[in-house]
Design a protein around this nucleic acid. Sequence first.
DNA 1: TTGTACGCGTTATCAA
DNA 2: TTGATAACGCGTACAA
Lengths: 389, 389
Amino acid sequence: MIKCVKCGEVEGIMKAGYVRGKQRFLCKPCNYYFTIQENDVSAAVQRKRKRHQTTIIDIAKTLGVSNSTVSRALHGHTDISPDTRQAVLDTAALLDYQPNQLAYNLVKSRTNTIGMIVPEFHNPFFPNVIIGAHDVLTKAGYNLTIMQCNESYQVEISNTKAMLANRVDGLLISLTQETNNFDHLNVFEKRGIPLILFNRVCEQIDVPKVVVNDFESAFMAVEHLILNGYERIAHLGGPLTLLVSQERLRGYRAAMEKHGKSIENHMVIQGMLTQQKARIYGQYLLDLAERPNAIFAVNDSAAIEIMLIAKEKGIGIPDELGVVGFSDNPESAYIGPGLTTIRQPTLEMGQTTAEWILQLVDVEELSFSGRKVLNTELIVRGSSMRKGI
Amino acid sequence: MIKCVKCGEVEGIMKAGYVRGKQRFLCKPCNYYFTIQENDVSAAVQRKRKRHQTTIIDIAKTLGVSNSTVSRALHGHTDISPDTRQAVLDTAALLDYQPNQLAYNLVKSRTNTIGMIVPEFHNPFFPNVIIGAHDVLTKAGYNLTIMQCNESYQVEISNTKAMLANRVDGLLISLTQETNNFDHLNVFEKRGIPLILFNRVCEQIDVPKVVVNDFESAFMAVEHLILNGYERIAHLGGPLTLLVSQERLRGYRAAMEKHGKSIENHMVIQGMLTQQKARIYGQYLLDLAERPNAIFAVNDSAAIEIMLIAKEKGIGIPDELGVVGFSDNPESAYIGPGLTTIRQPTLEMGQTTAEWILQLVDVEELSFSGRKVLNTELIVRGSSMRKGI
DNA sequence: TTGTACGCGTTATCAA
DNA sequence: TTGATAACGCGTACAA
């Protein structure tokens, strides 16, 4: 808002002492010192919304009592005469008093707020987890503040810093695809702020974790394909930085091995699956000379992209190609012959995560570092039901 | 955490003076006064996580300088010797100093945080708006904290209070289905906190609003049905407490009138469309002796429910029944013959809302109370394309 | 260039 | 039952 009078720059302006009682500024870019003209000053001052908030002191003054009395009255402490208490309450309403949570938090060093950081908002997965967590937390009298990272490690770091600076009482976090350094999380341990990882967890840091049984789910999915007569099953997986991707890959492998199916290396693709990438990989797979007759995808978006490609190429689903996804997005029930997929207990994940953080916050049992593994469900639809077997 | 020693209750405990230097408590439920035994006290004290946070004073002490020097060094003010500044920065890193945003906010009475309250998280609409807003705000150096209401007016009130108490610099809000009183919003005006309504707005309060052209969109949708040869068009609308519902109803009516179609009262149903309700209303409509041959639904979920019912009843879409929805949910592209619908510019809505709030926060132009109407797009899919015309 | 002292709005302690 | 006063952690006008 302060502009350099020389170069007009507004970024690198910093205060640089006083001259004749007026603030002196230094414009870093053009290295020029200046003070502000009266007009500008008045404008700047006017800018400063100096609206007076009624405080407990205002109430105290109007009533001629002390601020501690007001504080007591406001908080329903006993040891206060009903009269004064009512008077305080009345004038509080009269003056439109709103407690300043900032000040309260400062003195209590406690915010009654749980932070939640999620990697993305494109899939319905995290919003659903939020619904579950929100429910539990509000019932317990806690606020939930949410931040999202857009799958960016840098944003994740800045978000954790913001959470730290805002003194959340506890943090629920699901990691970015990019995250492979965990210093920003260790800070919470040092500071004694409870931390819980969910869904996108890592093993490098020892805190409670809430996940689904990715290994078993993937195993179940692939075995289902095999039992339906598919032989050459490809896997379109997520980035291996994510534990969930690793686990699902393991599950795929285990199922294939159990049933004596060979895994061809070029039929396993791992990567960050934007829609574009999913299309490229999917086309690659379906263009292979000996193309797979089934694909297990790490999420529903990728699976659906594959179904679309298959349709374009005239490859019949499920007869010529079986497809199984992961997550049970809403659209999976409606596409083509229906997408067989793994349903995740999103609400439950949010709820248990929230319940755990409440325990940690209230009971101060920081040693507790359990791991909750939630069970998924295989939703069988048309995309994997080969006819005639 | 404080239990009554008599009835074991934990809820109605309040402080009631001191006796021999020890806190005295009163259990409201059983009206019993008590102090806490030593053991319990030590436990209670221990509970209080008294981990010392390093403050600027710590840094000042270790360096033997004053706290103001530290403050200046930390904020890159000039007028400080490079040596001391570097020393401060070093010890800050050494002591793992984390600024206390709470204190900062208190003294600045400014939080650099924009609040956003959304009515629900079940549809992808609001998450997408959030993505758009988040993008703009983070780029401007602001935090975005999100709260959701589960369509509950009471939760909305408590959320606004929390936002107020947390001193957000500005608030973006989309109203609940239940909201028909706006006192909790007027407070923001009084307090000089910029407020913007988006999507679910109301006319009773004079602040900037960002909406889509619901009237024109609905008109477009219904006219599209008419031009495709549908005659008896029903409307499955949302609750009339919402302006969007009213506008979409108006659009429906206008299109029907323009083309000389009569509107039968029992073919227009308004209400809060849970999935269950959508099914009930849908079945009612399709069971009518002279059933509609097209339905314009207020959202995609309802439209899809209708498509499912039609399928169950063996009513062919689009030949026997045309369907148009609103919002373009992901599943709408994939269901049945594809659901014709209105696509809303969610990202853009988030972006412009964010841009406006930044203007209000920075420029202090509180008089500004514009209204941005974003344009939608009719996405034509199979559900409205009657063959043979 | 640095230090002193006050204010931001609350709660909590102790004395009255 | 009430009132002074000290925290809570930080920014900053003013003095040095």
